[in-house]
Simulated assay, not measured.
Amino acid sequence: MTGGTARTTRPRWVAAGVLAVAVLVGGGTAALVTARSDGAREDGEQRAQGYGQGSGPGQGLPAVDSADAGFAQDMAVHHQQAVDMSFVVRDGTRDEDVRRLAYDIARTQSNQRGMLLGWLDLWGLPKVAPPGRPTAWMGAQDAPSSPGGTERAAGTDPDMAGMAGMEGMEGMDHAQDMTGANGTGQGAARPGAGTRMAGMATRAELKQLGAARGRAAEVLFLQLMTDHHKSGIAMARSCAERCAVPAERRLAQGMVDAQQAELDLMAQLLAERGAHPRR
């Protein structure tokens, strides 16, 4: 699709994805309350291992080792990097299509991240996963591979990601090195405890994106975000199948639908620039 047709349909694609998520998660606070009440009403469903059992904070709420908790913790970190990259590329290009896509990603994923962290608060669970392999809650057969040697420090505090440093870039580096002294990500920072999370851009890639301008910034952003979305879809699809809380399953399925539409759009934008996804 090229020329005037591409320019006309492109905003509709993105708008449709954002609208689907907005309808799904609309009402923010109401959805958070629903996540708690849904869990309490559906004790019998027991779809996630550990739901309402084991080390959870109370009967009818997800346990700390459940898919519900793992997805919320990991996706909060995953989303923060997408938000950061989106703001960075908006400073690196004047192209309206890429800037509009980046804005839509930043707005949607910021809202979703807030919901995920809010649920963890309501459930009385830590906002960060304990040290170990990210996405362990998915099971070995469902966990996405880690393209390009990407990494995240186990126990990264999602509230710290992107909050420090220049233009958000050192902030993202800092977040990748954050682990709690008490093993929960909420104590002192210390470097060197890296654990891979699929789809996350490397420090070198983030710095390259921050320095790029024009077409180079657009292509790199689209390639990095394509990798990011592919792993995000795998995580969200797993939650849609494994998570016990109905509101969280609905949110996860909305992520799958919206990010797949954005993947199609990013492939088109790359082709128009004579480029293609990295893998």
Rank of each mutant, 00 (worst) to 15 (best):
T2P: 09
T2G: 11
T5V: 15
R7A: 14
R7D: 10
A15K: 10
A16S: 11
A16P: 05
A16F: 14
G17L: 01
A20C: 06
L24I: 10
L24N: 12
L32G: 09
L32S: 05
T34H: 13
D38M: 05
A40Y: 11
R41L: 14
D43G: 12
D43R: 15
A48Q: 01
Q49W: 15
Q53T: 15
G54A: 15
G54Q: 13
G54R: 14
G54T: 14
G56L: 06
P57F: 13
G60F: 08
P62A: 09
A63P: 02
Q73C: 00
D74F: 03
D74H: 08
M75F: 07
Q80Y: 06
M85R: 02
F87K: 09
R90N: 08
T93G: 12
T93C: 10
I105D: 03
S110P: 07
L116C: 01
L116A: 02
G118T: 04
V128S: 12
A129Q: 09
A129P: 01
P130C: 04
R133H: 05
A136W: 02
W137V: 00
M138T: 03
Q141W: 11
S146H: 11
P147N: 02
G149E: 07
G149I: 06
E151V: 15
P158S: 04
D159R: 15
M160K: 15
G165R: 01
G168N: 05
E170Y: 14
D173Y: 13
H174P: 00
H174E: 06
G185Y: 01
A189W: 15
T195P: 03
F221V: 06
Q223R: 12
M225W: 00
M225F: 02
R237F: 08
R242A: 02
A247R: 07
E248K: 03
M255Q: 05
A258T: 00
A261D: 10
A261H: 04
A261T: 13
D264I: 08
L265Y: 08
A267N: 07
A267I: 05
Q268S: 10
A275Q: 07
H276M: 11
P277F: 10
